[in-house]
Amino acid sequence: MLLSDDPAWWQRSQQRRAHCPPTSPWVAVAERGFPVRLSPFHDAAEQVAAWERSQAACSAYLRAVGLAGRPDWV
C-alpha cells in the first residue's frame, strides 16, 4: 500500500487539486519503514548502518517499481 492510497490522502488531494495548474503531475508517495533500535547508539558504525539500510530500502523500491532508471519521474 502506498501512503497516497490512504483515503485521507485522497480527501486532501481533492483539496490540493482545486489549486493546481492543469499540467501539475499526480504524485504518489511510498512510505515504509523497518524497526531499528531506539536505545542509544554508542558506535558511529551503528548509526551509519541504520542510514545505509534506509538507503538500500529506497534503492530496492526504486528498482522494483521501475523508477531507478527514470529519475525524471522521481
Binding site: M1, A28, L38
Partner: peptide, 25 residues
Amino acid sequence: LPGRWAVVHAATPAVLDAARTHLAG
C-alpha cells in the same frame, strides 16, 4: 522512527501497480 523512509514520485499507472505490490524487504 529512524528506519522510516519515503519516496515521492510520479503516479503513473504502471508504477502504481508495481508499487502497491512491493513489500519493504
